[in-house]
Amino acid sequence: MNTATGFIKALESGTKHIVLKRFTLRYPEEKLKFVGDGYQFDPKKGVGIAGTRGRHILFHDKCTGCQLCAIACEGIAEAITMVKVDEQWKQNKKSIMPQIDYGKCVFCGLCVDACPFYALYMTNDYELSSFTKSHLIYTPSQLAVKPKYDGEVEIKIGSRGAYHG
């Protein structure tokens, strides 16, 4: 009889789920909502500010070309190289700024931790796919652009199960 009750319970549990709300996030139409603007770091306090670790954003007016981000990345992904930029900044005598290869980046965010001048943050944008490898290399001017991300969907827990909505 144990066998029969086991089957019946399984059947009941299975059929119950037919009427539950479906959990799937329909990705291209729906996108997840994230907590903040992205992962940031406060060098004075020495802790980060919670956020999604997506593509970087580089503030040209704060970057001093100190290479600390590139040094941090050297042992991890070797994704950051310092390149010459045409711009002239007072704080950046050598005119070098990081250029990030997203084909190599692992999005650990240790470069953001390494930056002492609030120049490098991470944003919510994670859709970086491209047709060629060379398109994955983001130059400093590309990194300066603030990406647009409009995710509105969150996990909600209702009476008919959890769902994305």
Partner: peptide, 13 residues
């Protein structure tokens, strides 16, 4: 479709 519903998926869409 039925299996998808049972498994909280959407199935062919």
């Amino acid at each position: 479709k039925l299996l998808a519903k049972m498994q909280l998926r959407v199935g062919p869409l």
